[in-house]
Every structure is written in C-alpha cells, then in structure tokens.
C-alpha cells in the first residue's frame, strides 16, 4: 500500500530532480521554446515544497491536490496549468483514502493524464509531455521502475517528432531533432515515483 509518506517522497524526489535538471530543461526549451521551462518548474516545485510543509496535508489525494494548486499558481508558463491539472486530477481520483494500492494510483494517474490531454488538446506524437506520460501510465502495471523506463524512452522518442502543440509548433520542421522539454520534465516526475518506491 502507498501511504501519505510515499506521496511526500514522490513530490520531494521530483522537486529535487527538477532543481538538479533545471538548467538542462531550460536549455532544451531554448532550442524550441521560450527558454523558461527549467526556472518555471523550479519555482513551481519550490512553492509546492513550502506549501506541503506549511499545510501538512495528510492523505495522498490531499497532497497531490495541494501540489497541483501550487503549480497552477506559481509556474507562470503553460506547464503550470498542465502539471497542476495532472496532479489535481490524480489527487481527486484518489479521494480521501489514507492509503492506496499501486493499481489505484495507476488508474488515478491515467485520469490525470487524460485531464492533461483534454486541457492541452495534445495527443501522443505531438511532441509534448503526453509522449512521456502515456507510455509511463501504460507501463505502471509492471511496476514503477518499468514506468520510469517507459517515460524516459518516451521523452527520447520526441527528438525526431515535429511539434504540433505549443510555441514549438510555430517552428514547423525546425522543431525536429530536439527533445521536448515537457516530455523531459514528465520523465523526471515519473522517475520520482520510482525513487519514492525504492525501485
């Protein structure tokens, strides 16, 4: 069973890796975006960490709802509402249970990813965070480590794609050959899950 501590470890691991990888995320974003993804995500997860400490939510659902709310308010770029929606939909699907099973988390994350796809209008293959998240959710049945691998492979697989969503889509064919920053940070989020589980 996954308790509130697991979810706190997940968020903390993601915040730490976003912090560590911020420069790389911004560098990827300067190739095809507006060069702020790393600093935006860093600011967002810093606010998440502070809010979790201050408000000390006690259930998995409440932790993700609060984290998502902070991302919507503080990121300042499109990744704010997108990641915010991902975590809030996932948290909402978990309800107020004190502990959840891995299968429940997988199902809730799927709802979260669907929320992201509806909000952003993106489908797999559009060179967005969806390209890391969908394979990760599909692989969750085989464990968190498998999901991490799937997300990382999904992020790498965005390199040859032409962007069809967001600012990068204005670049047309010139977006080909660059890894998508959103898919890259999504892989960090899923890697955080594996880290929290010890897998």
């Amino acid at each position: 069973m996954l308790d509130a501590d697991f979810f706190r470890r997940w968020v903390a691991a993601t915040a730490a890796s976003v912090d560590r990888e911020a420069e790389r995320l911004t560098a990827l974003d300067s190739a095809i975006g507006d060069a702020d993804h790393g600093s935006n995500m860093q600011r967002g997860f810093k606010a998440v960490t502070a809010a979790l400490e201050k408000e000390a939510p006690e259930t998995p659902g409440a932790i993700l709802m609060l984290a998502g709310r902070q991302l919507i308010s503080t990121v300042g770029g499109a990744s704010g509402p997108l990641y915010g929606t991902l975590l809030r939909r996932t948290g909402k699907a978990l309800g107020d249970a004190a502990e959840v099973t891995e299968a429940q988390l997988a199902e809730a994350l799927r709802a979260g990813v669907e929320g992201v796809m509806v909000l952003g209008g993106a489908a797999p293959g559009d060179k967005t965070m969806v390209d890391a998240l969908v394979p990760a959710v599909d692989a969750l049945g085989d464990g968190f480590a498998a999901a991490r691998t799937a997300a990382e492979e999904g992020a790498l697989a965005t390199v040859p794609l032409q962007a069809r969503k967001g600012r990068a889509s204005y670049l047309g064919e010139r977006s080909i050959g660059h890894q998508d920053p959103g898919a890259t940070s999504s892989a960090l989020l899923i890697a955080g899950l594996a880290e929290a589980s010890g897998e």
Partner: peptide, 8 residues
Amino acid sequence: SAVLTVKA
C-alpha cells in the same frame, strides 16, 4: 499558458 491557466 494564458489560455491554459484560465481553463484550469
């Protein structure tokens, strides 16, 4: 993000 934030 202006569109997405309002929608969220």
